[in-house]
Design a protein around this nucleic acid. Structure first.
Lengths: 198, 198, 198, 198
DNA sequence: ACCGACGGGACAACCCGTTATT
DNA sequence: AATAACGGGTTGTCCCGTCGGT
C-alpha cells in the first residue's frame, strides 16, 4: 500500500466533498484533477461509498474527537468548553465558514440516506457528546457547575448550537454570524457556573 | 393553467426533496411515481432548479415565515418565542425529525452550490431573524428583557440553536434528542427575562 | 409505445446474442450499429437482462413452440416428427449451423447463471417436450408405435439429440455433420414404428 | 517454474470457467480468491485466452480422450460404448449435471467466437469421434454390428446425443433427465447389434 | 394541457494487462 | 517467483431535457 497516493486521494476527495457534498462530488472529475487514473482510485477503494466512509474516519473524525479532550490542568470545565468553542471561531476563515462544517454538511446530506455514513458520523457525534458530558459531570461533582444541570442534555445542546451556528453562518455566508452565534452560546454557558448565581 | 396539476407536482417534489435532497431527487422517478409524464412537468417548469426554487417559495417559506408572528396579546416576548419553539417539538413526529428540517436540509446542501437557492433560503432565514429581533426589541423597550441583550445576535443564535437541534436529532435519528435540545434552549431563554435576575 | 423501434431493437439484439452470446453482446455496440441512442434503448428496456428476456420470449420462443404442432391430417406420428426434424436441416444454411441453435446457445450459456433466463428457456423446452410427448402418446394409443415406449422419456431424448446435433455441428462448423446426425436420429426413430418390428 | 502454482491456477480457473463460462469468468476474482496476485498469474500465462487454451488442453482433454479407449478384452463394441455412457451417468452428481458438461459448455460459448478454442475443442471431439468410429468399425468387421451402419456418422450421432443430453439436463437442472436421456440412447444403440435383428 | 419517444452526455464500476521492484 | 501500484479502455445505467404530436 502506497500510503502516499492513498492519502492524496483521500485529501482531494475530502475537499471535493466539502465543496459539493458526497452525492454532488464526481469521482472522475476529482481523479482527473489529481492527474491519476481510475485504475489507481479503484485499487485503493472498491467503490464511492467506501471512499466516503474512509474520508469520514480518516479525515474528518480526528479533528473532532480531539476537540474536547479535557486535561487535569485545564481549569474550570465551563471555561474550557467555551475556550474550545471560541478556538473554532478563531481558527476558521471566511471561506471555511462559507463551505460549512464538514461534519454538519455530511450529516444533513447523508445521515438519512446511507446507514454507513450515519453510523460513522454518529460515532463522531457521540464521542464529542460523551466528552462534553464527562467534563460537565466533573464540574458538577466539584461544585463548579450549578446543581440540577443535566450533563447529557447540556452536552447535546452545546453540539446542536455549535453545529447550528455553523449551518446558519454557511447559508448566510458570513463568518461574523458564526462568531456572534458562538459568542452568544458562550455567554449562556457562563451562566452554568455556580458563582454566577446568587 | 391547471393549478391543480402544478400544485401536485410541487407537493410530490417537495416530499422527494425532503427525503433525498435536491441533488439526490430524480425528477424522472417523482414524475413516474405521480402517474404523469415529462410533458406535464416541463409544461409548468422550465427545468429542475426552477422547480426547486418554486418548492422553496411556495411550499417551504409559508410555514416558516408564519412561525414567529407576534401579536399584541401574545404575552411576554420570551414566553412567546419559547411557546413557538415548543410547538415545533409537539407538532413533530419521530419520522419528521428523522427526515430533518426541510429548510435546514436544503441550506446545508444547496446554499454553497447554487445562488438561486441561497437567496431564497436566506430570505426565509432573514424574515425569521427580523421577526425574532423585533419581538426581542419590544421586550427590551418594555423592560421585560434584561438590558444589554443584543436583539439581533440573540435572534440569530435562537435560529442557530433551533436548526442545530433539528440537525443533530436528524443524524441521531431521535425525536427525544430534538425535544431535549429545544428544552435546553428554552431554559436558557428564560434567563433573558428581567424577573429572573435578582 | 412505438412498436417499430422496439421491434428493431429486439431484432438487432437477437442477432447479436446469436453471434456473441448474451454476456458477450455489448448493448452499446449494437445500439451504435443501429443508429439509435442509449436514450431510445433505455426507454424501452430497463436493463440488459430484461432485454434478454424479451428476446427469448418474443424472438426465440415463437419459432420453437410452433415446430411440433401436430394436426389431425399429419399422418403417422413418427413420420411427422421426422419430417419436422428434417425440415430443420433443410431450412438451415451453413452459416446458421455455424452460429448454432439460438435456444441451445442460450441454454448452455445462461441457464446456470440466471434464473430469469432459465425459467423462460425451460418454458420453451417443456412446451416442445409436451408436444412431442402428446404426439407419441397418440401413436401409442393408435397402435402405431411400439408398445413399451416411454413417451415422455422419448420426447426428452429427441430434444437432446436434436440440440446435441446442433451443438456438435456448430463446434465442427459443418452443416453436413448436422444433417448426418439428424438423419441418424431419424433412422432410429423409424424403429419406433410398430410395422418395423416383426 | 513452480509447477505447483501453475497447476493451482489452472485448477481454479477451470472451476470458474465451468461455473461462469470463459467470458463470464473474471481472472481478477479467481486470482484474488486464490490468495495470489496478478504477477503470479501473468508470470505463467501471457493473457486470458492462453490460460483458457491451457485449461482445455491440460484440464479438460485428458478426461475425454480416455473415455472411449477400447481394449481387446472389452467385449462387444456396442456393450462397451453403452457401458462407458452409463458410467458417465453413474459418476455424475446432481450438482455436476446442473453445471453442465465442461466440454459442451465451452463449445457452445466459444467455438463460434475464438479460433484458438475451436481447434482445441474440436481436437477433443475428433479424438472421441475417431475412437468411437474405430470401435464400431471393429464390430462391423467382426460381424457384431448390423451391416449398413455408417461408423463415422454413428460416432458423430452418439457424441451429439451424449452432449445434447448433458445440455438439456443442465437447462432443466435435473440429473434424472440426463440419466433417462442416456438410457434411451443406450436402448437405441442395442439395436445396432446383429443379434437383435431377425 | 398533456403525452411519450428519443437525444445525448455523464458517471460509477469493472477488469485486463503492464511495470517497477524485490 | 512473485508483489502491488497503476494505466486506461469499456460497459451498463442514469437522467435531464427536447420535440413533435394530439
Amino acid at each position: 500500500m502506497n500510503q502516499d497516493t492513498r492519502q492524496k486521494i483521500l485529501q482531494q476527495h475530502f475537499e471535493a466533498m466539502h465543496r459539493q457534498g458526497f452525492q454532488g462530488m464526481r469521482t472522475d472529475k476529482v481523479i482527473a484533477g489529481m492527474g491519476i487514473t481510475k485504475g489507481a482510485f479503484y485499487h485503493y477503494f472498491p467503490d464511492k461509498p467506501t471512499l466516503g466512509y474512509a474520508v469520514v474516519e480518516e479525515m474528518l473524525a480526528p479533528g473532532y474527537v480531539s476537540l474536547f479532550v479535557f486535561g487535569e490542568s485545564d481549569g474550570h470545565p465551563v471555561d474550557f468548553i467555551c475556550e474550545r468553542l471560541l478556538s473554532l471561531v478563531e481558527r476558521s476563515t471566511e471561506a471555511e465558514v462559507c463551505l460549512g462544517c464538514p461534519l454538519n454538511n455530511l450529516m444533513q446530506e447523508m445521515s438519512g440516506l446511507d446507514e454507513g455514513f450515519r453510523v460513522r458520523l454518529n460515532r463522531i457525534l457521540q464521542t464529542m457528546q460523551q466528552q462534553l458530558e464527562a467534563i460537565l459531570q466533573k464540574g458538577l461533582q466539584a461544585g463548579q457547575i450549578r446543581p440540577g444541570t443535566d450533563a447529557k442534555q447540556m452536552a447535546c445542546f452545546i453540539l446542536s448550537a455549535m453545529e447550528g451556528s455553523y449551518g446558519i453562518a454557511k447559508s448566510l455566508q458570513s463568518r461574523a454570524v458564526f462568531e456572534q452565534s458562538i459568542r452568544q452560546l458562550v455567554q449562556f454557558l457562563q451562566l452554568l457556573k455556580t458563582s454566577n448565581f446568587s
